[in-house]
Structure formats: structure tokens, C-alpha cells
Amino acid sequence: MSFGLASPLALFLLPLALAPLLFSPLRLSPISSVSAAPQDALSTLVAWALRLLASLAIGASTLAVAGPFREGRAIQRYGEGAEISILIDRSASMNETFAGRTPAGGEESKASAAKRFMTDFVDRRAHDLFGVTAFSTSPIMVMPMTNHRAAVRAAIQAIDRPGLGYTNIGRGLAMALSQFPAGGEIESRVILLVSDGAAVIDPRIQDQLRADFRKIRPNLYWLFLRTSGAKGISDQPDAGELDTPQALPERHLDLFFKSLGIGYRAFEAEGPAAVADAIAEIDRLERRPFRYVERIPRKDLTDHSLIVAAFATSVLVVAKFAETRLKQTARAGASPQFAKRAA
């Protein structure tokens, strides 16, 4: 636990706390010498207590000016959650509807549907870390892995903007994998791929991807937003059709994912409702114990020092009220208050 000050320069006022040792807060009296009063232990004690209280009041006030705080810190907690790397297709076709048309009237594009349900998903997962990667012709790092929910939400809000270019899924996957911090324990790691099509992955990149997947071991979910009439994941080649990645990219991407030896599931959604179901299913599946870091924000301690200062000052005020005119008390004999003057 460490402490800090908002404006440390205020501490230059601290020597003022020594002033009570030199001067008394009590009135001058017409007695010419302190030696006139007899020494007594109680008076000395009261005098010193008042000095110390005054020093304390000044010191605490100075500290309140400086703005003391306890540093925020990160503590590890256990809960349910995961590190989720979201990989979103931003190719131009994502802006079409599930029927493959430009959205008209109340229709919703694939990107808008994905945006709506993904925002819900992010809001529901309280402890997860999210990273967002987009891909079209090239992979684009949108938001590195973070626990700032507002930042992740802002990144997902941007996914239904006009897309660009083509679908280069291989490089996108490589960048989504790079979202996970290197080394460390293999925790609950998830890649959520949202795309409306697949593409051939360059064989050179395939090998590299295989190695990366083996190293990082994420669970992979592929949310395939299928345009009606388009080829699906489980489509077998028709008679006379070649069974190549070029002809059936979805089927071959699925086969590639299955061959990776990691937890993998594909969801084929042909409409907004199916997207919602798929996301709810992923939410249900990814409930593994997860060690996450919670940041305890810095705690302001100004009030504490103000309380100390106010308390010490009130005692001084009470002492001032106990102070009496020397002329009256002189007749009554040496009271502690009288002797206190000696301070």
C-alpha cells in the first residue's frame, strides 16, 4: 500500500507546525515573569498537550491542502470470465441484409445485427477482458485487449460503418491471436470470429496459424452470418463440383478449424434471432473460472486529515474558553489555567 499527495508543494508550509512550540495561543498577562507562578506537573502537562495539539492541527491542515490519497492498486480476484478476442469482418458485404440486399426501410444489415447483440454480450460479461480486431483486405487492430468497457463498446459501435475491401481471414486470425498477451498462464481464452463469409487462407499463413493456435490454445467460436442462398458451412460439394477451398471456402475453413485440435464451435445464423441465440449460447459456454484483475481506485484521504485538524482545533478552542482573566484568578489562587500561562 502506498500513499501519495496531489500537490506535494504544499508541504513547504509544514514548518509552520513548529510555531506553537515558540509562541502561545493564550493572551498576554500583566505578570512580569513566569517565575512568579509555582511549577506544577499538571500545568506543564497541559501546556505541552496544547502545543502538540496545535502542531497536529497545523500539520493536518497542511496535509489537507496537499491532498493525500492512497494509491489505487490492482488485486487479483477469481470469478467467471475469459479473455475474449473479437474478430469482426468489415468487408463491404457485412453492410447488406441477411437476404443479401442493401438495407431498406426497417431492415437491419448483418453488421447492425452483430453490433446490437455484441454490445449486449459485452455488457453482460462483467469481468471479461475484450480485444477487438477488424479485418477486410488487411487486419486492423481496433482495440487492444482491455477491461475498459466503454472503449470496447465504442469499438463495437463502429462496426456497422461502411465496410471496405475483401475478406482476408488468415491475417485477421493472426492478429486476433496476437491480442493475447504472450507467455503467462493459459487462462480462459476465447476467439469470437464474426464473419459473413470465408476465404482461402494462404498455406504459408495456415502453418503459422496452426502453430499459434497450439501455443495459445483459445476456444474458437465462429459466428457465421449466412446470407440466404449462399454456401453454408456444412454444404457438401455437388456432384461434378470440385471440393477445393476456392469453390467451398466456408466448408474448408470449418475443416481447417476442426483440424486445429482446439475447442471449436461454429454457429450458422441466418437472421438476427439466430445471432442472438448463438451469442447467448457462447455466453453460457464461456463460464469457466477465471483469474481477473480488479483495480481498486485511489482513495482520497483529505477528509481524514481534515477530521484530525478539526478535532485538534476544537480542543484548542475549548482551552481558549477555559482561559480566564488573570486579575480574577489571581485572587482565587493558582489554577491550572493560570499556570498554563507559563507555557
Binding site: 468489415r90 477487438v132 477488424a134 486492423i140 487492430m141 481496433v142 482495440m143 487492444p144 482491455t146 475498459h148 466503454a150 472503449a151 470496447v152 465504442a154 469499438a155 459501435q157 463502429a158 460503418r161 461502411p162 471496405l164
Partner: peptide
């Protein structure tokens, strides 16, 4: 074409995320 990575977010609350992005 400008490509929007993310919409404006508060700089003070999300400083670390912005800095990393």
C-alpha cells in the same frame, strides 16, 4: 476512405485503452 476504429470515448476514464489503441 477514413475507417472508424472506435467512436469518441472519455479520455480520462479510458486513458489506458486509448493509449494502447
Amino acid at each position: 476512405e477514413p475507417f472508424l476504429l472506435f467512436e469518441p470515448i472519455d479520455v480520462c476514464e479510458n486513458f489506458a485503452a486509448l493509449d494502447a489503441a
